[in-house]
């Protein structure tokens, strides 16, 4: 363990129905990562490859909910993280994956696995290992209580840094013009 006087905050991150773009943007805080590592340590995250989330101070969720596994991960985060943050457009309004919401799931599966041109003997995968898709893609606030939101597709490294440093310092996060973006 680090010997600093203040215990490090634990942060967990996950990508649900997202593209990892928000995680990439997180890495865009560049050399500030070194400053961050002085203040926090990472629990479950694609950065650590830890597979389950233990008790944490802050959870960052990228992506919305498109299948049952997404729901399990989100619930695990909500149960373990004192502060849960929705990061990026997909976590906040479903984003690109949610653009299937006006179509019925049966129709989509039919089209992709049966009807599409060039498919021979197509079948819908039914391995129990695979998470089943939900009939619609939901932003995470429709399933659990979310404490903060960082909009953007992706949010800039600066926006993520601002919210994280505000939270670490115990301040109410504030973005302001230039950092609030939905695109």
């Amino acid at each position: 363990m680090n010997m600093s006087t203040k215990p490090k905050l634990r942060i967990a991150t996950a990508t649900l129905a997202g593209c990892f773009g928000c995680h990439m943007s997180f890495l865009d805080i560049d050399e500030r990562l070194f400053d961050l590592m002085e203040l926090v340590e990472f629990d479950r995250s694609p950065l650590t490859d830890i597979k389950t989330c233990g008790p944490c101070d802050i959870g960052l969720i990228e992506g919305g909910l498109c299948n049952a596994e997404n729901v399990h991960v989100l619930r695990e985060f909500r149960a373990n993280c004192k502060i849960l943050v929705a990061v990026g457009a997909c976590a906040i309004n479903g984003g690109l994956p949610a653009q299937r919401n006006h179509l019925s799931l049966s129709m989509i599966l039919e089209e992709v696995y049966h009807a599409q041109h060039g498919l021979v003997d197509g079948f819908i995968p039914n391995d129990p290992e695979l998470p089943l898709p939900l009939d619609q893609v939901h932003p995470i606030h429709e399933v659990v209580k979310v404490d903060y939101f960082i909009p953007g597709c992706p949010p800039s490294g600066d926006a993520i840094w601002k919210v994280l440093t505000d939270l670490i310092a115990g301040r109410e996060p504030e973005l302001g013009h230039g950092l609030v973006h939905y695109d």
């Binding site: 995968p125 039914n126 129990p128 089943l132």
Partner: peptide, 22 residues
């Protein structure tokens, strides 16, 4: 949530024929 999460999987269950706990 306002919607029933288990019901939200029913179309997928029907299309895949699955009914396991997962």
């Amino acid at each position: 949530p306002a919607f029933d999460l288990d019901y939200a999987l029913s179309q997928a269950r029907q299309m895949t024929g699955r009914d396991d706990t997962g």
